[in-house]
């Protein structure tokens, strides 16, 4: 074995060792690395018990209701399999609207309602001009073809 081959083996040996251990750590801590839980995981009781956690999902259309004279908002989050009702008191981010993906931090209340203390809006990877968005809305449900 030439010294060059030996160095090559050492470098790639160390690299693959580190890559393998990182991969194992990542697989083992899969849920801890994820930023939020979705409603299905909550329905299955996978959320951390008795602790605050983040819940992510889409705001169900027509589910947002505000208490008059108060900053309290109620809405329902869905991942299209399960739904979780949420209540939040505070200022909402600009992108918060019905049909938008959001992430709320808070705890599960005794009545199955998620009490949020922070709401973040999740932006998706789609970008389009307002006219395109408007014409898509008119055609209702037609996928973008640009």
């Amino acid at each position: 074995m030439t010294p060059r081959r030996k160095r090559m083996l050492v470098v790639f040996g160390i690299l693959s060792g580190v890559a393998a251990s990182v991969a194992l750590a990542v697989v083992a801590g899969r849920q801890n690395i994820s930023f939020y839980y979705d409603p299905t995981q909550v329905a299955l009781g996978k959320e951390p018990p008795g602790k605050g956690f983040r819940l992510g999902g889409m705001v169900v259309k027509g589910s947002v209701s505000r208490k008059p004279g108060d900053l309290t908002v109620r809405f329902v989050l869905t991942d299209f399999a399960h739904q979780v009702p949420v209540t939040y008191t505070g200022v909402l981010p600009d992108l918060f609207r019905e049909g938008q993906g959001i992430i709320a931090h808070g705890t599960m209340g005794p009545n199955g309602e998620f009490v949020a203390d922070e709401v973040l809006a999740k932006h998706d990877e789609k970008y389009m001009p307002p006219e395109v968005a408007a014409s898509l809305k008119n055609k209702h449900g037609v996928k973008p073809t640009t």
């Binding site: 899969r30 994820s34 930023f35 992510g56 998706d124 990877e125 970008y127």
Partner: peptide, 23 residues
């Protein structure tokens, strides 16, 4: 790989970019 706050790739993804040519 994970649920994240950051959105997925718009250009560096499988399939067409989720963005019109003008952008």
């Amino acid at each position: 790989w994970w649920n994240s706050l950051h959105q997925g790739g718009t250009v560096m993804r499988l399939g067409k970019p989720e963005m019109p040519g003008s952008m």
